[in-house]
């Protein structure tokens, strides 16, 4: 039962990304070609509203449902890992037109062959874990 709320939020998230065509390879192409405001509007409005909500959480010292103060830890500052990792991620995102969330949504949304992409992503994650000590971070 305590997992049900996460299932329901996931369902809302999946329906929204599918119906807004965020899961579409063609929409990602349109984004990387700067030919529509659509994807920028989605990410931009999510960030603006998200930033306002986080400010609200901080200023009102909002507690989560367990009564713990909602806190945010800063990400460790570095340059190579974010720029290199981000670039590798972007190459894959444009190639298959899906980042991790949409991969799972598409498996449910009549494109089960995105299981192949998920298998590739799990393999990529595994190889990163193995090579991690040798990579610049």
């Amino acid at each position: 039962m305590r997992y049900l709320k996460f299932l329901l939020i996931g369902i809302l998230f999946g329906i929204t990304l599918y119906k807004a065509e965020v899961v579409s390879w063609f929409r990602i192409q349109e984004m990387f070609r700067f030919q529509s405001f659509h994807m920028y509007g989605i990410i931009g409005s999510a960030v603006v509203i998200g930033a306002a909500l986080i400010q609200l959480i901080r200023r009102t010292s909002l507690k989560d449902m367990y009564g713990h103060l909602i806190s945010f830890s800063d990400k460790d500052m570095s340059f190579p890992r974010y720029i290199l990792g981000g670039t590798i991620f972007g190459l894959g995102w444009a190639l298959i037109g899906a980042c991790p969330g949409p991969m799972f949504i598409l498996v449910g949304g009549n494109a089960s062959y995105f299981l192949i992409a998920i298998a590739g992503a799990v393999l990529g994650t595994f190889v990163y874990g193995v090579l991690r000590p040798k990579l610049p971070h």
Binding site: G92, M103, I116, A117
Partner: peptide, 21 residues
């Protein structure tokens, strides 16, 4: 395409510490 693209997404997301979300 799906295997290599997925691989890049998975490797890059963990190396870069996160994905779009």
């Amino acid at each position: 395409i799906l295997l290599s693209g997925g691989f890049l997404v998975g490797f890059g997301a963990r190396y870069g510490g996160g994905c779009t979300s």
